[in-house]
Simulated assay, not measured.
Amino acid sequence: MTGTRAFLIRRLVTLLALSAAIAAALFTAYYGVSRNAQAVRDESAPAILQVAAAEVALNDSYESAESSLTGDTGDIEGLGEDYRTALSTATQALAQALKSTTAGTPARQSLLTITGLVSSYGDLVQQAYVNRDNADLRDAYLGYAETMLRGDDGSPKKVRDGDSDILARLVKVQGKQLRLLDQQTSFGWLLSLAWWVLVPAAYLALAVLLVRTQRFLRHRFRRRFNPSLLVATGLLLLAVPTLAVFTYQTQDRLSQARTSLRQPNIGRSPDTTNKRVSTKMAETHWRTGAVVWIPMGGALLAALVFVGLQPRIDEYRFRAR
């Protein structure tokens, strides 16, 4: 085997290996970001918003009940439409949260417990209404209902591990969902390693080697261009920066979604927030779909390299004497 043929074979193997490496690194890095866009839109956002809506509705239900029962129109209006609407909204939101929670089995069990406690809370408020003519009993039942809803002191406070009131339980479930949201929308160290080290290293090594190979072929075979290697180089130089831009844009939308879902009082306008998040994530749909093209692009790149070098290798075949 001549030295040139051996060199070309080694170069072909190296280029094919680098083509596989860049495709694998790109797929891993791109998929790591793109997979979370759909999860945030279809899973995390609805789950977080349902829990937030339940929390707001439960607070509103108590405020409405207390206002109705301790006001001058309690005998005429009863608990009032606002109370019934708020409690119904909270019950529906809890039912949806139970279906969509992203915090796993412990969160579902906690939401089941909360649903039962909300029923008991509603019974206590109803008892307060039944005893509305007896101020002491009425206030006692309202106090029990408030304690079940908000805890011993009946005021917003930092939730501790041992707190067992309804709102504290909801805060704990929400905390788990928000931590998952942070994981889904954060550009962690693995993705940073992939995008800042692995992909650039494979990209530069392959680009440099493709250019050097074309210069060698032009010098050795007196041909100005190698069409296949030229196309392979163009594909590489176009695809990687494009996917990097798509990744940046997708990550930016994920960060915006996280900011929206961490705003205070999102439970008061869950539909508006959900629409905002869905719109942002919908903008990433066609970008996330590009992940399926990466393996095909890697295969095409390898094929172009093979087509570009194999004929030159064949020119150096010889017969043993």
Score class of each variant (00 low, 15 high):
111 L>D: 07
104 G>Y: 04
139 D>G: 08
106 P>I: 09
83 Y>M: 02
142 L>I: 06
109 Q>S: 14
128 A>M: 06
47 A>W: 00
90 A>H: 01
92 Q>K: 09
112 L>A: 13
127 Q>D: 14
89 T>Y: 02
84 R>S: 12
74 G>S: 04
70 T>E: 10
96 Q>S: 11
105 T>D: 15
117 L>S: 12
50 Q>P: 03
127 Q>F: 13
77 E>S: 07
58 L>M: 07
132 R>A: 05
66 E>K: 05
119 S>H: 12
75 D>P: 00
112 L>D: 15
101 T>S: 14
78 G>W: 02
127 Q>T: 09
57 A>P: 06
92 Q>V: 08
73 T>S: 12
48 I>E: 09
125 V>W: 03
66 E>D: 10
47 A>F: 02
113 T>G: 15
56 V>Q: 13
98 L>D: 04
130 V>T: 13
75 D>V: 01
60 D>C: 07
90 A>M: 02
140 A>Q: 14
162 G>N: 15
78 G>L: 01
73 T>R: 10
113 T>D: 14
162 G>A: 15
101 T>Q: 06
109 Q>T: 15
116 G>K: 03
136 D>F: 13
59 N>Q: 14
50 Q>V: 02
76 I>Q: 13
53 A>V: 05
157 K>I: 12
101 T>V: 09
72 D>V: 10
133 D>H: 11
66 E>Y: 06
